[in-house]
Design a binder for these strands. Sequence first.
DNA 1: CATTTTTAAAAGTATTACTATTATTTTTGC
DNA 2: GCAAAAATAATAGTAATACTTTTAAAAATG
Lengths: 223, 223
Amino acid sequence: MRIVLSNVKLMINENVYLKDPESSALGKKILNESILLIKEIGFEAFTFKKLGQRIESNESSIYRYFENKHKLLVYLTSWYWSWMEYRLVFETANLTDPKDRLNKTIALFTEETKDDESTEHINEALLQQIIISDFTKTLLTKEVDEENRNGFFVIYKRVIHRIAGIIKEVNSSYPYPDSLASTIVEGALHQHFLKQHLTSITNCSDEISPSDFYLDLINKVLN
Amino acid sequence: MRIVLSNVKLMINENVYLKDPESSALGKKILNESILLIKEIGFEAFTFKKLGQRIESNESSIYRYFENKHKLLVYLTSWYWSWMEYRLVFETANLTDPKDRLNKTIALFTEETKDDESTEHINEALLQQIIISDFTKTLLTKEVDEENRNGFFVIYKRVIHRIAGIIKEVNSSYPYPDSLASTIVEGALHQHFLKQHLTSITNCSDEISPSDFYLDLINKVLN
DNA sequence: CATTTTTAAAAGTATTACTATTATTTTTGC
DNA sequence: GCAAAAATAATAGTAATACTTTTAAAAATG
């Protein structure tokens, strides 16, 4: 199923950016090329100076959009979860059986993503790779409580709550729906990472996907 | 059950350090105080200069033990997993029923740690807090493949394999023992973090522990 | 006690993560 | 179509980081 996103603007918390990057050509270039550059050299080595060189623009111009690279990463991850939320709502809309809805949901959040061609300035497949390697780092900081208060993670939290809600529809007496949802979403990212880099401690491979593992898991846990 | 570690030296891969920190008083001070300082200001803000000031020693002296702070963190995390492996072997040694062994194991890896008084230069409870916030960062780098080849993560991987082995004893036909083990160990760290900072997306609290959640989960998955 | 090793102190370098200033270009509103 | 405002580019500068190097002093060891 192809999603039409052309007319939808994903809303990202305003505290994350100084100037909305979706409001200008340079801003979109920043999003687009930062994904490529972070994927290429890793988030730790990524700097605004290097990004500036790459987009043939100035370091200081990028600073007018984002205070620092951490906030740019929070922006990109928020965009990703917002896009996933949209897909979740869209792709489960016509499913009435809670079990179908749950299986579809788990598949969506544990599968590898293909690029969605309806957004030209974001390569979703590459963005998912960045989410796998770097999303957790946006949370694991000394500033997490303050940033959480400032709404940096609202979209992610909303996504987890939606999934927890679907879990409850299937089994309303299960006592840990939020923990199960957060464990699966975060765990799926981790299994993708292990599949790519630490293959010996996962059963996921070209034949077995994280989806297989988590679909099996959730059905056993909820029945 | 109290563990006697006085006579045991946990072996850490030699590629991680330049000089064995357990071989000198300064080295032990580096381990001891780095745990306190990382906990205090966070790993990102932690520098060898600050650590040097704190232990009233010189920055350059610390560089003779560890090439950089990342390797110091890999050392600390390896030490932690080595200690956990020791506890795992010790505490399951006299259990013959596979189910008992598994439950004990899951409890061990999902519970909050109390300081083990038998090692004076490491505060295990604080170290666990660092593991919760920072262990994943040691893996999520651009250099993970090279460091993995150099044996930086052998202890962690061995721990996961041990747990996977115990899972297989309980249910030899379960198809994803390694993924289940890695999901639980890593997921438990994540649930502890959520419990502390993003309480709305976990059911873990003062009343419900990550152990409750994962013990329930593993028994449902394997039966 | 002489040699080696370890540690400390100081200085130096390249890079990072910004900020500030000024100039130029682009956009917009009348 | 032009003046004003806003955005961008270029340059320079700063404080901190993440080291390396050198030299000297202290401690350990054979």
